[in-house]
Amino acid sequence: MTTPSPLKAALREAALTRRDALEIDDRLEWDPEIAAGVLALPIWDNASGPVSAYWPMRSEADPRPVLEELHRRGLPLCLPAIVEKHMIFRRWAPYEPIVPGGFGTLVPSPAEPVAKPAILLVPLAAFDRRGYRIGYGKGYYDRALTELGPVISVGIGYAVQEIAAVPDEPHDQRLDWIVTERETIRCS
């Protein structure tokens, strides 16, 4: 576990407050725009998967339309789950059962096989243009990106979540891309 930074905590709270204040009608309009931006990335040209995303909670941007399209294209999918304070990824396909996974998340059944994703669609609390993100403060995605080795990482969120600079620390992992309803940012 990482030690929470007071500055990151304040930035997280402010970004989540902005995100939570978005009108549901705006989010419902913007989620398809974000999905179209993700699906337009050049990473899909030679992708073979597996692709991991997250099951949205609270006011997070919804990656499920992306997952449905990737499934239609034949790419294998998985969702993250926290097991013994460690993020793993389990095989999943649209309309398959999901179960409560802690922290308010929904995850594939523990009976599903573990997968090693090649591409991760990552939720954001806050982000900057360098590709650094603030999540919910436990460091699960940073550790997963480190442990998985070379993977493509795409942050998904709303433009209001952008901040000038994330106070990055040595354990923080940069994202390759960030997609919002306004733009696609190539980070590295």
Rank of each mutant, 00 (worst) to 15 (best):
L121E: 07
F89L: 07
G102H: 05
W44C: 10
L28F: 06
P63A: 03
T184Q: 13
F89M: 04
E96F: 06
P65T: 01
L148I: 11
F127C: 01
N46M: 03
C187V: 14
S52E: 11
E84H: 10
G135A: 04
E33N: 00
A144Q: 14
G149C: 14
M1T: 15
S48V: 13
G139D: 05
A21R: 00
P42L: 13
V83Y: 06
A40S: 15
E84P: 04
D168Y: 10
D45M: 00
Y132I: 09
I24R: 10
W30M: 01
A47E: 15
R19M: 13
L39P: 01
L41G: 02
T105I: 15
G137A: 01
P100K: 02
E23A: 09
P167F: 06
P108N: 01
R27W: 00
R19Q: 08
P63E: 00
P108S: 05
V154D: 15
P94Y: 09
E169R: 12
K85N: 12
A9M: 13
V38Q: 00
F127E: 09
E162A: 11
D25I: 00
A14H: 14
F103I: 02
R174Q: 12
C78D: 11
P97E: 03
S5Y: 04
H71L: 01
P108L: 07
Q161T: 08
A159V: 06
C187Q: 14
G37N: 11
I43E: 12
D25H: 02
Y132G: 04
Y158N: 11
G131E: 00
P150I: 07
A164F: 06
A21P: 10
L124T: 15
E147A: 12
R143P: 07
E69T: 13
W55P: 02
D31M: 02
